[in-house]
Design a protein around this nucleic acid. Structure first.
Lengths: 106, 106
DNA sequence: TTTCTATATAAACATATGGTTATATACTAA
DNA sequence: TTAGTATATAACCATATGTTTATATAGAAA
């Protein structure tokens, strides 16, 4: 692959918050406000991290009325499956969100 | 794996020069002055990139008299093999170095 | 229309990062 | 020992990055 695109990919992954987002999206698609709730960060910060992940083609978005759902876009790098599998399991965070009523959405 | 260590790994890979170094080391171990010659960068710059790669456990070093040879350390991340395979082939650069007498070493 | 919610964008600022120059360290050879 | 080569480190500077606050945009509901 081209070094430029690979660099952009790894730059997108070179941040703890963004790896957290990817680890969460491995379980299911989530909207911005759900990520804000789980990661306890401000909405603009999450939005800007998502923009970087989207520009690097690591996630894709889907609008549903006023919500925008983000999910993993696993087709753009031949090594991405193995990389995502190395991320920690975050199912407890998702479960927590559902039980606190934060899911459904927002 | 731990997010902290994964972040350090991807930070180490999030630079074009360092991806170039990894792509070169895929072919064979190289010393600092050979990398300086191939990449046409200053010696301190290459040294500092190598330090980052070493701290992230992506490369290891071996001293041989006054030279220090760097090579891939592929055992620390389960996904590294696939990631390295996506790097561009640089055998022409290695070949060029050998033909110009830059090899043997320094 | 107006209001509310969800998300994106912009501006400002502090910190991190990469390159350069100068210097230090380690080893070799004379 | 001294001189030369290979590499590492430190200081400095310019640029990149992440966070915050404020504001803009888009859609839903009244």
């Amino acid at each position: 692959m081209e070094l430029e695109q690979l660099t952009e990919c790894y730059k997108a992954m070179a941040d703890k918050t963004r790896l957290n987002i990817l680890a969460l999206l491995r379980h299911e698609e989530l909207c911005v406000c759900e990520l804000v709730e789980i990661l306890q960060m401000t909405q603009p910060s999450i939005s800007q991290h998502l923009r970087k992940l989207k520009q690097a083609k690591l996630v894709k978005e889907r609008r549903n009325s006023q919500w925008i759902f983000y999910s993993i876009d696993g087709e753009n790098y031949p090594f991405m499956k193995e990389n995502l599998e190395a991320l920690p399991d975050m199912s407890d965070k998702i479960e927590q969100l559902k039980q606190s009523g934060g899911k459904v959405c927002c």
